[in-house]
Amino acid sequence: MSDQLDTVFSALADPTRRAILAMLLEDDMAVTDVAEPFEMSLAAISKHLGILTRAGLVAQEKRGRVKWCKLQPDAMREASVWMQGFGQFEPVHLDAFERFLERELTQPDSDGPSGT
């Protein structure tokens, strides 16, 4: 995997970041509006947004005194292509991808990553 793909999957591993991406599917949002539904500080949300921005999943732009966030769906392309290589995935939609990750991350794996 490329470093960029590693960065994207790492960013998607956190449920708060996936929720932020789902919110941004609707429209661009001010950082303060992104933070509103979460029970965490604005600084914590800003850290999550920084990770999403470094992964290329979100772009941030200052308009006047307000910082706006915009979804960058093309950043998911490499991850989508990689997952489609397994043949069991259709084109990735963020909601479906989030459900897939939640299932994978919550299933107990007593055999370890290699299945041994």
Rank of each mutant, 00 (worst) to 15 (best):
E90T: 09
D33S: 10
R18W: 11
W68D: 01
I51W: 05
A19Q: 14
V58T: 02
G50V: 05
K67G: 00
T106H: 12
F97K: 00
D74L: 11
L105I: 00
F9R: 12
L49T: 02
A19P: 00
V92L: 15
D111Q: 12
A13G: 13
T116D: 12
H48R: 14
M23N: 08
T106M: 05
S80F: 01
G85L: 07
D111R: 14
G115K: 04
L12W: 02
R54Y: 07
E26M: 08
L71D: 03
E102K: 12
F97E: 02
L42F: 12
G115C: 04
E78Y: 05
H93Q: 11
E98Y: 04
P91N: 01
T16E: 10
E102M: 08
E102P: 00
E78F: 02
S46M: 07
S114A: 14
Q60T: 15
D6V: 08
A35G: 07
L57K: 08
A13T: 09
D27K: 14
R77P: 00
P37Q: 06
V34W: 04
Q60D: 00
G64H: 01
D27V: 00
P91M: 02
A44Q: 15
M40K: 05
A55K: 01
A44L: 12
C69I: 04
A59C: 06
R54F: 07
C69A: 15
E104A: 15
Q84T: 05
K62S: 12
L52T: 02
D74P: 00
V8S: 06
G87R: 08
D33Y: 07
A13N: 13
Q107F: 06
L24M: 03
F9H: 05
P15H: 13
P15A: 08
M29R: 15
K67W: 11
V66A: 09
V31H: 12
Q4W: 10
A30D: 13
F9N: 08
M23G: 01
D28E: 15
W68Y: 15
G56Y: 10
G50H: 07
G85K: 06
R54G: 03
E61G: 05
L105R: 12
V66P: 01
G56N: 05
R54L: 13
F38C: 06
M23V: 02
R17E: 02
C69K: 03
L49G: 09
A11M: 02
Q4M: 08
E39G: 13
A59L: 09
A35Q: 12
L52C: 03
L57H: 08
A79F: 12
T53Q: 15
H48E: 13
D111S: 14
A35E: 06
E61Y: 06
E102W: 06
P15D: 11
I20Q: 01
P73C: 01
R63G: 01
T53I: 00
V34D: 03
L12T: 01
S80N: 10
K67T: 15
M29K: 15
E102Y: 07
L5D: 00
F97S: 02
T106L: 12
Q60C: 08
D109M: 10
T7S: 14
L42T: 11
V66M: 09
R54A: 14
D95G: 09
E26S: 10
E78H: 11
A55H: 05
